[in-house]
Design a protein around this nucleic acid. Structure first.
Length: 197
DNA sequence: GCCTCGATTTTCT
DNA sequence: GAAAATCGAGGCC
């Protein structure tokens, strides 16, 4: 069981992630991002939940080619793809190989927590970043971050936990290609959007 | 705790 | 016109 008490967690980010990290298939990067550090303008923590989306994947926005919304998925790896979900929420993705991306679904809050509470308007720590829409609201990510490089401010993506225990399961909220178990999570944390089983 | 519902953008039929 | 990579509120148990 991965230890998740804040006092035992990483004090901060390790080495910044580079192009070689992102220029791989989405499933590999999605698994590798669990336990990584994500920070946006001083607010962030450890990524605890991701999902992979690939070009030949009917559940992916990139399935069927380039549109104005998904064009970031066909741009350089290591940049952001931010889109609006259900007309209300923003969702933050990391672009990997062409037409591929990793949806970041949940985060363990560690720094800038006061700013997150203020942006979210909730009092429950578990509701700060446990879900793609909640995470973007807590970190103040919106459409203006679409296509921006992740190796420059306001973003900081870096190594986090040294050897995270990663579990997987089916992706959330999709109806096509439902059998691909491309949702990944950190074992034992309460900060995921829903339990793995 | 579970279920239903509505808000609202983008895409596809 | 319908569905979608969602969330939060309100009703019920």
């Amino acid at each position: 069981m991965t230890q998740l008490r804040p006092e035992e967690g990483p004090p901060g980010p390790g080495r910044r992630l580079t192009a070689e990290f992102y220029e791989r298939d989405a499933v590999t990067v999605a698994r590798a991002l669990v336990g990584a550090w994500l920070e946006v303008d001083g607010a962030g923590g450890i990524i605890v939940e991701t999902e992979a989306y690939a070009p030949d994947d009917a559940a992916s926005h990139s399935y069927g080619g380039v549109t104005p919304r998904n064009s970031a998925m066909f741009g350089p790896a290591g940049h952001a793809y931010v889109y609006r979900s259900y007309g209300l929420h923003w969702c933050f993705n990391v672009v990997t190989e062409p037409g591929s991306a990793v949806l970041v679904r949940a985060l363990m809050p560690l720094v800038g927590i006061e700013a997150m509470y203020a942006r979210r308007g909730v009092e429950d720590e578990r509701k700060l970043c446990s879900g793609p829409g909640r995470l973007t609201q807590a970190l103040a990510i919106d459409g203006g971050h679409d296509r921006r490089p992740l190796d420059q401010p306001p973003f900081l993506l870096a190594e986090g936990l040294s050897a995270p225990s990663v579990v997987s399961g089916p992706r959330v909220g999709i109806t096509r290609d439902v059998d691909r178990t491309w949702r990944f999570g950190l074992r034992g944390t309460r900060f995921v959007s829903r339990a793995f089983r």
